[in-house]
């Protein structure tokens, strides 16, 4: 009887935490996908942008002691860097083969890593936040869990709605579908691309600060963002709503793999994302919700 109770508690919390982390993954993943839709490219520099935003938040939070100032500064930095990458790197490379964009954004990843080291000094710290615990039946929820949950869901929903219901969203979709065609219809393609990157920066910045609230500000945050890339591909690079599922699948898989496989493969939890990714790419080469490309010569 007592054993039963423990199990319910363990399981419900495990699933809750897995899903919650998954939602945060999908927030970062959405940043990748927005860029892919705008530019048909992956922004490999995202992990460092996430770190940069988190350290900016830490610095402003320590200076002012206010979380909302930290949030604002993190988002500003993330959006600014994201737009700068679009203008400085992605735009000059329009029309070049993907390897050029991959190489160039990896170069930016590398350069920003140095910037993060200068700005953040690889400090480990937490953002100033009073954490209380609430017990809801078998579930234990902390203040930081609630903040990250309530912060992430509206943004994810907001971006999806923006894309589906507004004329701006329709224009973005048109660019994602066929940039040249959209230009022929008189859409300001370049500005829309920039808007896509800015939106990605916004989502990424928010994701980074929610991750920092959930865990810590530390150099390890970049690995969350690298794993989120797996969530993005599981969903399909050009899907938007799908990233929520991709993230949650990833978050749950990590916790379940750690629970069951760890005795045999210590530490597999943090790498299960990539095993999962490889398996899924073999079965569904364009992810679960991604659209397949038809090639012509």
């Amino acid at each position: 009887m007592a054993l039963e109770a423990v199990d319910v508690e363990t399981w419900s919390n495990l699933i809750f935490q897995g899903v919650l982390l998954g939602i945060l993954y999908s927030l970062i993943a959405m940043g990748y996908n927005l860029v892919y839709r705008a530019n048909k490219s992956i922004n490999f520099a995202v992990p460092q942008v996430v770190l940069l935003a988190a350290y900016t938040a830490l610095i402003t939070a320590t200076a002012t002691g206010r979380l909302e100032v930290a949030l604002a500064s993190a988002i500003i930095v993330s959006v600014a860097v994201s737009m700068a990458i679009e203008r400085g790197v992605a735009r000059p490379l329009l029309g070049r083969p993907p390897i050029a964009l991959i190489g160039a954004t990896l170069g930016v990843f590398y350069a920003l890593k140095g910037v993060v080291l200068v700005v953040g000094g690889s400090e480990v710290a937490v953002l100033p936040l009073d954490i209380d615990y609430y017990r809801l039946g078998a579930l234990t929820v902390a203040t930081n869990d609630l903040i990250s949950l309530l912060g992430a869901i509206p943004v994810l929903a907001g971006v999806v709605l923006l894309h589906r219901k507004t004329s701006f969203g329709a224009a973005m979709r048109a660019v994602a579908e066929d940039a040249e065609g959209a230009a022929a219809y008189g859409l300001p393609v370049r500005r829309l691309m920039l808007a896509g990157w800015a939106l990605a920066g916004l989502v990424g910045g928010l994701g980074s600060i929610l991750l920092a609230v959930k865990t810590q500000v530390s150099p390890d945050l970049e690995y969350y963002a690298i794993r989120a890339l797996a969530a993005s591909l599981i969903a399909g690079l050009d899907s938007l709503g799908g990233v929520l599922l991709g993230g949650i699948v990833l978050g749950l898989a990590e916790q379940l793999a750690s629970k069951f496989l760890d005795p045999y493969l210590p530490g597999i939890g943090s790498d299960i994302a990539f095993l999962l990714l490889l398996l899924i790419l073999f079965v569904k080469p364009y992810g679960f919700f991604g659209s397949e490309r038809i090639e012509r010569v």
């Binding site: 423990v6 495990l14 935490q17 982390l21 690995y223 916790q255 530490g267 943090s270």
Partner: peptide, 21 residues
Amino acid sequence: FDLPLRATEADAERIAREMKA
């Protein structure tokens, strides 16, 4: 208990629960 150096908060909580048992 296997606590990764780069544990996520979810990892830490899972391990703490296993420990509690």
